[in-house]
Design a binder for these strands. Structure first.
Lengths: 212, 212
DNA sequence: TTCAACTTACCGGGCGTTCAGTAACTCTAC
DNA sequence: GTAGAGTTACTGAACGCCCGGTAAGTTGAA
């Protein structure tokens, strides 16, 4: 058998002001768990494999979290919390509908990039357990808020109305959410540039235009 | 224990000209397996649960297929085969680049809708096994062919060039692939109308335009 | 000495898979 | 027309493995 692969030992806290040996921090465990869930899928990631990635034993993981589903819940809560926060910012609640929509889309791209693994996990849920179903419900509520913005922008004449509003919203989310499948932080494309591109393509399309 | 739920018994073959009993058709087994894989996720779908959906026993399933992974392989092969077929049609190989691109995008939407569960399964792969990795490789090749078309259309001046070509292609695929997450066949939106909407939004964008 | 942070050893259960046996049916010989 | 051989399509009971989770003992810093 190969020796242990303590990839994450470097992520342990230094002095944490408490007693005991150099301990794991919960957020370090969570980061690595979420990465593993994304690599293999939540169901396909065993607690044993997860412990191996952490360079510890299964039981050590159980010292920090109450179970596998608890890890999932913590991760999803973070992703959803940050997404929902975008909707409560002032730029999302006042001003012309199309400007609010642009702000929220930019905000969604920002959260998606900043919390990439967490949002990735959220977007891949199937709804097998109650934890997953609760998260899916919160996600639906977020989507609904954005759909309302799209509707308002259409009514205000800022968006084309020859394509159904539901279809519009869904294609828009499809485009944005797909980012988790390919965006690599640290590459040549910054998150600001990415947000610009998303807004440009979404509003003006891919076609070459005679005007502007 | 509750009685059997023979949902799929109706899908058995009638007289098959051969000896033996009234059998299951392999494609009926596959249809139900793919539906279950999409509902729960491939890993989370046990052969027992699958057999229950079929109204049979686990071991009966093993009479038809060599294993769980075999079901996955058959399903992915179907989805990929139909997608790849789009690229070999005459309209995809000759004519102006932007028209070929539009044809392929329409074709992709058509396959996606016609083989919805099969393509859904394909798009959710994680690459845990060799079967999955092989399918992902074939999918990457398909994506690459479309990316080449996008490049040609840009060079020909039919597509905007202020957004990076890779980003363009990825956002385009993100939009199209998201269809599997929400499209319900038999609803008010036909697949023809959906393809029209996708082409419209992709090329002209969501914004209201002064021209046309 | 105390207590956080583990480790080793283990449990019940469900998983994918196998296999011997058998029911249901057709085909052929007479 | 029917015996019986042959084929197909299963059934039911396991198998070994690995899963998520736990109990109890150990380590090392304060």
């Amino acid at each position: 058998m190969a020796g242990p692969a303590p990839e994450a030992r470097e992520q342990r806290r230094g002095g944490n002001g408490r007693s005991g040996r150099d301990p794991y921090d919960l957020s370090a465990v969570l980061d690595i768990a979420v990465a593993a869930f994304n690599d293999f899928g939540y169901e396909a990631t065993s607690m044993g494999a997860l412990a191996e990635r952490l360079g510890t034993s299964k039981s050590a993981v159980y010292y920090h979290v109450s179970g596998k589903e608890d890890l999932l819940r913590l991760a999803l809560d973070r992703a959803l919390g940050h997404l929902e926060a975008v909707l409560t910012e002032p730029e999302a609640t006042s001003g012309p509908a199309d400007e609010r929509l642009r702000f929220v889309l930019r905000g969604a791209v920002r959260v998606l990039v900043d919390d990439l693994p967490y949002v990735t996990l959220l977007l891949r849920l199937r709804g097998n357990t109650q934890v997953e179903r609760d998260a899916l419900e919160r996600r639906r509520e977020f989507d609904h808020s954005v759909a309302t913005l799209v509707d308002e922008a259409r009514t205000a004449g800022s968006l084309r109305s020859d394509v159904d509003a539901r279809t519009t919203t869904r294609l828009l989310f499809g485009m944005i959410n797909s980012i988790v499948e390919w965006y690599k932080p640290g590459g040549p494309l910054t998150s600001e540039q990415l947000a610009d591109d998303v807004i440009t393509v979404a509003f003006d399309g891919l076609g070459e235009r005679s005007d502007r």
